[in-house]
Design a protein around this nucleic acid. Structure first.
Lengths: 221, 221
DNA sequence: GTCGCACAGATTGTCAACAATTTCGTCACC
DNA sequence: GGTGACGAAATTGTTGACAATCTGTGCGAC
């Protein structure tokens, strides 16, 4: 399902493995990624690892310096804010498109997500709510059917996981975001593109305001 | 100054050469890019060319199929529209940011571009106007100071040149876009972020409407 | 005449070895 | 005690050859 690294051909799986390892936190920001080590860890040739690192560098997940190797790129708080700002407008576009193109089944699915969200918040299921949040955004992107926007968001999300991740765990966060999520769903169900875009942007603006509270990643080793 | 392919280290220049060749029209859409040929053409090793092709594939300029090589990716009209839609919202963001952050010198520069645009249109200088158009958008992005957005736009622009390119040559196009450009400049000079964003989006929406008239690239060889 | 098949050419994918560069510890020297 | 040069270890960068795969062509069978 990888949208951004579609046309490949070179090293099909190694890049995915490394991406996954970074997302899982197995590789932390600023950690060195030594080609030889990775090649034994993933059972691939060094050339394959090298190709994967080049790809990840273009994607922005990894930083490569000539003759000094690759390391996991650390995202500063400032950059995390910028990423979220771009997400805000692009997801706003997707929400508007979704409001235009949604089928009745799509709307039923969205309403179901809304119900489950209510239930998760009522039951204090933080982790489940976080997963539903992910699913809502993914569904809206899918319904919107904007492949280019989807690719852009996929890449941005890849860089941002560490910051996004902890956000759902903030106490009281759900009570703020739940009504915003429901408003987005309502707007799409009303097939009102402008209202959907506004709702999505309001929601992500609120996320951006909250970002500083999760703290920036340590820049040192 | 390449923002998107910053952290490199592998093949510094080859990717730039190929990118340039594609933009210049030396390589046309769907044209095969044979590694051996490129390596002699650019005086680089095959491995360097290979690395460059991997990078360009991630950037979306090139399409790679396993065991069947790389070719210049053809952008359909539909995809060109999607690209422009994303550009619309992201450049809207940049315009809003520019309205907030512009210094007095920035505003003077923008006004100068506006004056030159008026002059170019009055004098029928289509090519000069096209260049000013490019400069206006670039300046707004620079003033906005949103690096992530700038990177996204850079990549999208790279895919879209062929479509964007012919647009300025359409007869009567300038008389439509000039007032839009001036409105954008006015809004930024008034330091009104919302108005600047709206103006930019109106402008790019008009570009999108015009896109079908430049025709889609032929899909066959 | 057309379909299937094998073979040759072209092209990409992979690998291992070698060269170049950086990094780090050691030691002499001030 | 600190500083700088030297050298070894670690790591990346590059090259060339070889293997695997795809493409097109010609030949024979039906």
């Amino acid at each position: 399902m990888s949208v951004v690294t579609d046309a490949d051909g070179g090293s099909p799986e190694v890049a995915d493995h490394i991406r996954e390892a970074i997302h899982q936190g197995e590789f932390v920001p600023n950690q060195r990624l030594v080609e030889a080590d990775l090649s034994v860890q993933f059972g691939a040739s060094r050339a394959a690892v090298r190709t994967a690192l080049v790809q990840l560098a273009v994607e922005g997940l990894v930083e490569r310096v000539a003759n000094r190797g690759a390391r996991v790129r650390a995202i500063s708080l400032e950059e995390a804010v910028e990423i979220s700002e771009v997400r805000m407008v692009v997801e706003g576009l997707c929400a508007a498109k979704a409001a235009r193109r949604a089928t009745d089944e799509d709307l039923a699915g969205l309403r179901r997500i809304g119900d489950e969200m209510r239930a998760a918040v009522a039951g204090g299921d933080v982790f489940g709510y976080s997963e539903l949040n992910r699913r809502l955004h993914a569904t809206l992107r899918a319904v919107g059917g904007q492949k280019v926007a989807d690719g852009v968001l996929e890449r941005l999300r890849g860089q941002n996981v560490r910051h996004q991740f902890r956000l759902a765990l903030l106490p009281g966060r759900a009570s703020v975001s739940l009504p915003q999520h429901l408003e987005i769903i309502d707007a799409v169900c009303a097939r009102d593109p402008e209202r959907a875009e506004t709702a999505m942007r309001t929601h992500l603006a609120s996320v951006i305001e909250t970002l500083p509270q999760v703290g920036s990643g340590p820049s040192g080793s």
